[in-house]
């Protein structure tokens, strides 16, 4: 799919999301001239440790979107087993089918061109509610989440508070 088709599709999604906002996140462009870089804010889901937080992230789309997945990186401070210390989000649907030669993830859980900004962000919200400590991106966070939950909770409530302060 050519670059123009990718940008047409992204513009279309942007328009849809501004007309019909979805609960749980808001999305816009970092720079109006570049439809491949999105600025999104994810609202910490209710009844989770992240409730009340406003977490900013940048989505970067490749030229061959939707055949390859975007990358998502939190710019707000984040403490989560599936988020690398530098903020990159590691969930299976953001992995291209060819990325996992060991067959660790099922093909059906990996990237498919039917995914949209909306389905990706909903997956990230679901990740915040239920961390997967099987294949952690942040090993310290995963260890804390598993072994010293209280410490984990304290750290998360601190980043929630900071995210509110920087709004």
């Amino acid at each position: 799919m050519s670059e123009s088709q990718a940008s047409l599709l992204l513009r279309k999604q942007l328009k849809d999301l501004s007309r019909n906002p979805v609960d749980g996140f808001s999305a816009g462009l970092v720079d109006d001239s570049n439809v491949f870089e999105w600025n999104v804010t994810i609202i910490g889901p209710p009844d989770t440790l992240y409730e009340g937080g406003y977490f900013n992230a940048i989505m970067s789309f490749p030229n061959n979107y939707p055949n390859s997945p975007p990358s998502v990186r939190f710019t707000s401070e984040m403490w989560h087993p599936n988020v690398y210390p530098d903020g990159r989000v590691c969930i299976s649907i953001l992995h291209a089918p060819g990325d996992d030669p060991n067959g660790y993830e099922l093909a059906s859980e990996r990237w498919s061109p039917v995914h949209t900004v909306e389905t990706i962000l909903l997956s990230i919200i679901s990740m915040l509610s239920s961390p997967n400590d099987e294949s952690p991106a942040n090993i310290d966070a995963a260890k804390e989440w598993r072994e010293t939950k209280e410490e984990f909770k304290r750290k998360v409530s601190r980043i929630v508070r900071r995210s509110q302060e920087s709004m």
């Binding site: 799919m1 061959n64 939707p66 055949n67 089918p97 060819g98």
Partner: peptide, 17 residues
């Protein structure tokens, strides 16, 4: 068809998968 073509093209260029 265009989306199929893009989908299959990406898969072919990803290797024997």
């Amino acid at each position: 068809e265009a989306c199929w073509r893009g989908y299959i093209h990406t898969a072919i260029n990803d290797g024997p998968g």
